[in-house]
Computed example of a mutant assay.
Amino acid sequence: MKVLGILGSPRPQGNTATLLHHVLQGAAAHGAETTIICASDLEVRACTNCDVCKQTGQCIKDDDMQGIYDLIAGSDVIVFASPNYMGGISGHLKPIIDRLYLYSTVSAEGTLQTIIEHRKKAALLITQNAPLEYSHYIEAFTPLRGILNLIFQGEFDPVHESVMIPLLVAAGMTGPKSVAKNLGLIEEAYTFGKNLVG
């Protein structure tokens, strides 16, 4: 079992990175081989919706996303981690998510499908200053969770929780070491990782 963590924060020791590390430690404790890549260290250009990938099955852009495609192909679980920036994912992670467009297609009947043959698990980790009670902050990630479930699991339903990738939210983060000081959250992240590979 191979687990790929994609860090969307530019802070390698910050809350998002710490949360992701604990999730991957939980996965590793269950026998998984884990890898982390940091989006801010990579050059991934924006998707321009040129649709070349729909004809060739490959993205035409020659940048670091090509290596990410290879890592995804060799992984069983992909964990995306990002701070909540203005109600969405970070600008470092966004082009990577957009370039996953490669994997989506539309059937003759007009339904959304994935071209990934061997289904993979995916999960989303979010850190934010806002408290967990602010449900609209969490709901802002619902469309992304549905799309990622389509890409990696082949099922899409923008309404029902059961057809969305798992979400772990670290809320009320008041400083860069908030996750590291929260033993309950660390345990939750560790268990979250174990469950992804269990």
Rank of each mutant, 00 (worst) to 15 (best):
I36E: 02
V23E: 09
H21K: 00
S40N: 15
G8C: 11
P83E: 05
T16F: 07
A28G: 05
A29I: 11
P10F: 08
G91L: 04
Q58P: 00
F80D: 15
I78E: 06
K61N: 10
L42Q: 02
V44N: 14
S82H: 00
T34S: 02
V77W: 01
I78N: 10
G74C: 11
I72E: 07
R11Y: 15
A28L: 07
T56N: 02
Q55N: 01
Y103K: 01
Y103I: 04
I78D: 02
L19H: 15
I60R: 04
Y85L: 04
I97P: 02
C38V: 03
T18R: 11
K61C: 09
P95W: 10
T16V: 15
G8Y: 10
Q58T: 09
D76R: 12
L102E: 01
S104D: 01
L100S: 10
M65F: 15
S75K: 11
G91K: 04
A81P: 03
A81E: 04
G87A: 14
A32Q: 08
G67N: 05
D76E: 15
L71M: 06
G67H: 09
C47H: 02
D76H: 12
S90N: 02
I68A: 03
C38L: 03
G88A: 09
H30I: 01
T56F: 00
N15L: 11
I36V: 15
P95T: 13
S107H: 07
S9D: 04
S90D: 12
C38I: 01
N15D: 05
A17T: 15
N49G: 11
S90E: 06
N84Q: 07
G57T: 12
G67K: 10
S9G: 05
S104E: 02
P12L: 14
S90Q: 05
S104L: 05
D62G: 13
V23K: 05
S82C: 01
H30K: 12
E33A: 11
